[in-house]
């Protein structure tokens, strides 16, 4: 077995790359939420002066990219790879947003798990000696996602109580071989898990088994126990998914109840903001990590984090054809 591998799904990074900077931009609704003050920029409206939702999302990507360069003092030539993705078909929000980035680009798709997918690849590239600086970035936009995955915004329908609200925003993380910041020490890559859920309005229920599978594999591969961590942070399981994930991990001998939080339950105020079962979208874990969590780690309030972004790998065609929802979760250990 390759020297850096632990168990079936995990790698240990020998020289753990550092997260030396983050940047985040969020929409107005996210700005009104409890984490509103942690984002670098909160937009006043969802179009941001653009003509279409898609253009607006690309602008958010472009501006987040500029901001992370600005905040870290890096030039585009310093960045060896951008690893990025979003929810729109063929990841156009990202590619159009990064057209003028002039840095080597790898596009990835893991639905809402994309942040951890890009962090995993980025960290391994840096640890492997293939890169010094990698920017990992993901975005989503409520309006463009609704248009592509669900119904027109003006259609008078009711959202199901299990539905989740796609985060409007973009988060970027700079993973580097040199510098100060929390380090990525382990990467656990998820398997595709499908427990037969067909309801696209209940993605938390569909994704929970994937999250549980990855978390349990992580503990088994590394030998860590839940006590090792200050926080196990899932991406966007929402109310339903978080409860199921907690139970599923627990019944396999790892009690994470006290450590488990979900980005999808942090970014909005569920009592005041009408989001039903919580938040979702690539930008959910990306903005929560790049904003709130990164600050908590820098200030020492969180020392050991297992970040587990979760993705529902469906598309509108598969939903219409009555397919079940394959899901995935990727985990990275981040230690301050």
């Amino acid at each position: 077995m390759a020297g850096k591998r632990l168990g079936n799904q995990t790698v240990r990074l020998e020289t753990p790359p550092r997260i030396i900077s983050t940047a985040s931009i969020a929409g107005p609704k996210e700005g009104e939420g409890p984490l509103g003050h942690t984002f670098d920029l909160v937009l006043e409206d969802e179009l941001w002066g653009e003509k279409t939702w898609e253009k607006a999302e690309s602008k958010i990507v472009r501006e987040t990219w500029s901001r992370i360069l600005e905040k870290s003092g890096k030039a585009p030539e310093d960045i060896n790879y951008i690893i990025a993705g979003d929810l729109l078909n063929q990841c156009i929000a990202t590619t159009f947003g990064l057209r003028e980035s002039s840095a080597p680009y790898l596009g990835v798709y893991g639905a809402c798990s994309t942040m951890c997918e890009s962090l995993s690849i980025g960290a391994m590239l840096v640890d492997g000696g293939f890169a010094d600086n990698v920017v990992c970035l993901t975005s989503s936009h409520f309006c463009s996602a609704e248009k592509q995955f669900r119904f027109p915004l003006e259609l008078g329908t009711q959202r199901a109580p299990t539905a989740q609200w796609t985060v409007l925003g973009c988060g970027a993380v700079l993973v580097s071989s040199h510098g100060q910041g929390p380090a990525i020490t382990h990467v656990t890559t998820g398997k595709i898990v499908d427990k037969g859920i067909k309801d696209a309005n209940n993605m938390g229920g569909a994704m929970a088994p994937a999250a549980a599978d990855t978390i349990v594999s992580h503990f088994k591969d590394t030998g860590f126990t839940p006590d090792y961590y200050d926080l196990v942070l899932t991406g966007d399981l929402g109310i339903v998914g978080k409860a199921i994930c907690d139970e599923m991990v627990g019944e396999q001998g790892f009690n994470i109840s006290k450590k488990l939080k979900d980005c999808g339950l942090m970014i909005y105020d569920l009592n005041k903001q009408d989001v039903h079962a919580g938040a979702s979208g690539c930008a959910c874990s990306a903005t929560v990590f790049a904003g709130h969590i990164y600050k908590e780690m820098l200030e020492g309030r969180i020392k050991k984090l297992l970040l587990v972004a979760t993705g529902a790998l469906l598309n509108p065609t598969s939903t219409q054809q009555g397919e079940t929802i394959p899901s995935i979760a990727h985990a990275v250990t981040i230690e301050a």
């Binding site: 109580p161 209940n202 109310i239 339903v240 409860a243």
Partner: peptide, 8 residues
């Protein structure tokens, strides 16, 4: 999952 989910 149906049992765990909030109802309309």
């Amino acid at each position: 999952v149906e049992k765990k989910s909030p109802k309309s």
